[in-house]
């Protein structure tokens, strides 16, 4: 906690502040104390909590799935293998339904997105004060446990997807084809500036909407958990339990939407008009 008896707004702000590591304006490197200091650090700073949790969860994902993949055989599966196969089949089915091009990347990409985003969203269900309190006991002033409530995390993934969209568009249609797609639709060559504006916005909107949708949903969910946590402890359960149950749906759904939209975007990038 920032102070001994924080007001409600201090409490909320504290919970929404990432553990930022960067260069202070005076030239020293260190952890930012408070939102203003973090903002002063500019672009060359990093959210240690977001990176830490997302990498840890990503490693958990690849460790679990690698473990099952190593044991994978055509024999009767059991336990972990069952679960992993279920996920793989589910993602594989979704990809095959939507994506008709040939690519070795799309299906594993979709699986990684789904599981990783789901795991990061899942952190939302840990009571909001558990980990930050433990962290503050360990001397860490700020601790935001849900990486997907940090726009850097969702935008980082969305930009990666955007990069893949552009990459595959150019790979499948060639540079001229890609530029043609951006400029010659929908109104023919006499309206090139207008077309470019329209298609350009459409293209840029893909990663932005992808990132903001996930971020917005999870940020709002987290905020509501924080608001509930301000209430007296004896009524919290009455609100946090229904909200958490509802949130189980939200976190799966958001992970699924992120995955599905990625597949759809990449499928569109593969289609020749």
């Amino acid at each position: 906690m920032a102070s001994e008896n924080p007001t409600a707004s201090e409490y909320i702000q504290h919970h929404l502040q990432n553990l930022t590591f960067g260069q202070h304006p005076d030239g020293t490197w260190g952890i930012a104390h408070g939102a203003a200091e973090a903002a002063d650090m500019g672009f060359w700073a990093i959210h240690l909590d977001t990176m830490g949790f997302s990498i840890a969860l990503g490693l958990l994902f690849i460790w679990l799935f690698r473990k099952a993949a190593k044991k994978a055989s055509a024999e009767t599966p059991s336990g972990l293998q069952n679960f992993v196969e279920l996920m793989v089949e589910f993602v594989d089915g979704s990809v095959k339904e939507t994506f008709h091009g040939k690519s070795k990347v799309v299906a594993p990409l979709a699986l990684t997105i789904f599981v990783w985003v789901f795991l990061m969203n899942l952190m939302d269900l840990i009571p909001v004060d558990f980990l930050p309190t433990l962290a503050s006991l360990a001397g860490i002033p700020y601790f935001k446990v849900v990486p997907t409530t940090d726009m850097n995390a969702t935008l980082g993934m969305a930009f990666s997807v955007f990069f893949l969209i552009v990459f595959y568009s150019i790979k499948v249609k060639g540079i001229s084809g890609f530029i043609g797609e951006l400029t010659l639709q929908p109104f023919g060559k006499w309206m090139i500036p207008f077309n470019l504006l329209l298609e350009g916005v459409g293209l840029i909107a893909k990663p932005i909407s992808l990132a903001l949708r996930l971020f917005g949903n999870l940020y709002a969910g987290e905020l509501i958990f924080i608001l509930i946590a301000i209430l007296p402890f004896w009524v919290q359960w009455a609100l946090s339990v229904p909200w958490a149950i509802f949130h189980i749906l939200v976190i799966v759904l958001q992970a699924f939407i992120f995955m599905m939209l990625t597949i759809v975007y990449l499928s569109m990038a593969h289609e020749d008009h």
């Binding site: 500019g42 990093i46 990176m51 997302s54 990684t112 990666s160």
Partner: peptide, 14 residues
Amino acid sequence: MNLNLTLIGQAISF
């Protein structure tokens, strides 16, 4: 809500 290096770090780990 600051955009910073985390963005790139996240993309790399992704």
